[in-house]
């Protein structure tokens, strides 16, 4: 048996693959966040950035890569969850009383599935343009896709803004457990620094959520307008 085969056939190997795909997805989230934050630089910068990306020759390669990554992370997670469920065919009559586990660790699969549902909604909304088609096809003065106008008009509707804020909260709960588990899973463990590493991981999860949530909030509060 090859080493990679052997590794991926073990429970730890599968968890490492799950964690590694999670790290790659967090990388994507950070790049996506930086792109989103161009909103604060005004319509010119954001639309130029969007135009550059939408006409990039590697756009579809990137999209296929991302779908593969999300698919891998989801498949591995569901497979792991099912195997873990099968490891206890008869449950406790009194239930297991939680001592040190958190809401976040126990509901990581649920928050993950909710994030996946949000992802579908988000793609239908801003990529396909099916949720609010009236905002999705606008062009700016230079004939480029008016992403700035689309985002600002969309989040001008409170229901849409609230749905994104709820989704970001759920994403935050998912990332918080995921990021704080990283050092444990990859065996980065030093008595002196492990606390600081876990704080930093929690901080990164919070930064991603706050950064993304700042966009609908700013539109809603009128800080950003057309």
């Amino acid at each position: 048996m090859g080493r990679l085969d052997g590794l991926l056939n073990t429970s730890i190997g599968q968890k490492l693959a799950l964690a590694a795909s999670g790290v790659a997805l967090i990388g994507f989230l950070l790049v996506h966040l930086l792109g989103n934050l161009t909103l604060f630089q005004g319509p010119e910068v954001m639309n130029a950035y969007a135009h550059w990306m939408q006409t990039h020759p590697l756009l579809w390669a990137g999209r296929v890569g991302l779908v593969t990554l999300f698919g891998l992370h989801t498949t591995l997670a569901i497979r792991l969850a099912l195997e873990n469920h099968r490891a206890r065919p008869i449950r406790y009559a009194a239930g297991l009383r939680s001592q040190d586990s958190t809401f976040l660790s126990r509901y990581i699969v649920l928050t993950g599935l909710l994030v996946l549902a949000f992802l579908v909604y988000h793609l239908l909304h801003f990529t396909v343009g099916a949720v609010q088609p009236e905002h999705a096809r606008l062009l700016d003065e230079q004939g480029r896709h008016d992403v700035y106008g689309m985002v600002v008009r969309s989040f001008g509707e409170p229901a849409v803004a609230i749905s994104y804020l709820v989704a970001m909260t759920i994403l935050g709960l998912h990332l918080f457990h995921g990021l704080r588990s990283l050092s444990q899973t990859f065996g980065v463990n030093h008595e002196t620094y492990v606390g600081a590493i876990r704080w930093a991981a929690g901080g990164l999860a919070l930064a991603i959520v706050v950064g993304n949530a700042s966009i609908p909030l700013s539109v809603w509060l009128g800080w950003i307008s057309l």
Binding site: S11, I12, K15, L80, E83, D100, R180
Partner: peptide, 16 residues
């Protein structure tokens, strides 16, 4: 793995 135990998902109930 062969014995059919589950995998660790960092709940930390074990140590408790």
């Amino acid at each position: 793995d062969r014995e059919g135990f589950g995998a660790c998902t960092n709940h930390y109930e074990c140590a408790a």
